[in-house]
Every structure is written in C-alpha cells, then in structure tokens.
C-alpha cells in the first residue's frame, strides 16, 4: 500500500526534518493549499490572483519537500508533471487570449460578465487566473527542484572545475 509507505516515511527520521517540524507542516499544509486556491479563485474579486495564489501553492509544495524530504515532495508533484503543467498553463492562457479573435480582438473578454461581486463573473478573467495559477505553482516548484535537488549536480560540476583549476595551477 502506498499509504503505508508514506505513513512510514512520515514517522521515519531518515527522511526530512524532526517530528516537530513534520507535525507542524501536517497541521498547516491544508490551510496553505486552501488559502492558495482561494486567492486564485477570488482573483477577480479581491486582491490577489493567479500569480499570488500560485506562489502560495508552490510554497505549500516546497514546505512539504523541506519537511518530509525529497522523495515525498517529488511524489506529490514530480519534476516531469511540473514541467508539463508549466507548459500547459501558458498554452491555456494563450488559447483563451486567442479565443478573443472570435469577437474580433486579441484578449477580448468574450464571455458573459455575470453579476458584479459574484464568484462566477468577469468572463474569461477567472479562467486566466486559474491557468496562471497552475503555471506559477508548477514553475516555482520546478525552480525549487532545480536549485535544491538537481542543484547537487551543478555544485558537483563546480567542484570538478575547481579541481581542474588546481590542476592547471600546478602545471
């Protein structure tokens, strides 16, 4: 059972930080995600929007990875899925923009605007917020993965070039 594995990982001191951190992360993670989704969905009504909400969601994934280690973090959102979501988010955004050509203009808000201050209002803007939210979540988490987990590869490169430099000095 995958659940058992994850449960084991949660209590295993080999992965991630101490149980204090893990408990706190488990306590706040749900709130972080709900808040991120709220910021995205209410982007057209209150301050916030796709970018701000996406950053909050990405921070949720980052906190998971920091607390529980990279295995669990990558299991929740792997680098490959992140890269596909990243690309798909942009494409959806662009397609909504292009769909405006049906009304004659690029980025025309062609959908019904609805009633002001209602959740289902403002035409295409909530859809665009969702697309941007997905993109920002995926790309910021991908940057985090690249800098932290895959970053070891880069620092190994740096070490080898330093060795080269030492070697050339000796020559």
């Amino acid at each position: 059972m995958a659940d058992d594995k994850i449960k084991k990982m949660i209590h295993d001191s080999e992965h991630g930080m101490t149980s204090i951190v893990k408990t706190i992360v488990r306590f706040v993670i749900g709130i972080i995600f709900v808040f991120g989704v709220y910021i995205i969905l209410y982007g057209h009504l209150t301050p916030g929007g796709g970018f701000a909400g996406g950053v909050i969601l990405a921070c949720g994934y980052i906190i998971l990875t920091l607390g529980f280690g990279k295995i669990l973090g990558l299991k929740k959102l792997s680098d490959k899925v992140a890269s596909v979501l990243d690309t798909a988010g942009v494409l959806v955004f662009l397609i909504i923009g292009l769909a405006g050509f049906t009304g004659g203009y690029f980025f025309l808000n062609f959908m019904a605007k609805g009633e002001i201050f209602h959740l289902a209002s403002a035409g295409t803007i909530p859809l665009m917020n969702i697309a941007i939210g997905v993109k920002v979540t995926a790309s910021i988490f991908a940057v985090f993965i690249a800098l932290s987990i895959f970053g070891k590869f880069v620092s190994a490169l740096g070490e080898s070039s330093e060795e080269n430099r030492k070697g050339s000095n000796e020559e």
């Binding site: 890269s83 690309t87 942009v90 494409l91 662009l94 923009g97 292009l98 980025f107």
Partner: peptide, 20 residues
C-alpha cells in the same frame, strides 16, 4: 490588420507547444 497581435502570439505559443 486584425491579426497584428499574432506577431507575439505565434512565437509564444509555439515556444511552449514545442516543449510538449
């Protein structure tokens, strides 16, 4: 005239579609 924004939309769209 109506398709002037395509000058940015085509390369932008193709850049990401290419990756997929």
């Amino acid at each position: 005239q109506g398709y002037y924004p395509l000058f940015t939309a085509i390369p932008l769209g193709m850049a990401f579609f290419n990756l997929l």
